[in-house]
Amino acid sequence: MKTYYNPEDLKNFGKIGEFQKPLADKFFEYYGEVFAEGALTAREKSLIALAVAHTIQCPYCIDAYTTDTMEKGCDEEQMMEAVHVAAAIRGGASLVHATQMMNKVKEISM
């Protein structure tokens, strides 16, 4: 069955440089540095990436960072908590706009 997303494509991510090498090289160098140990540990960064992956709903990123967080020693509970952080922010982002709705209701109501 043909689909827009093919799991096999994930391993070809590094080949995007075939069409534009200098920009790809800069991106991957930056990417590598972002995920290195720093003020945040590589493990913390991987959990953030997992949460963001769910927010942007990228299936490649979800596959990649599910494996990566497990390879950083995280367990299912920690991973699910990270996804709930993403969900809370997404849900909260909708709900906080309710204040605008409430303001408008008040504005146009007697």
Binding site: T41, A42, R43, T67, M70, E71, K72, G73
Partner: peptide, 19 residues
């Protein structure tokens, strides 16, 4: 001794030891 519970690689030894 830690070994992964599945088809993935082990975490970095020092960090996991601390955890």
């Amino acid at each position: 001794v830690y070994n992964p519970s599945g088809a993935f690689m082990p975490a970095a030894q020092a960090g996991l030891e601390a955890e």
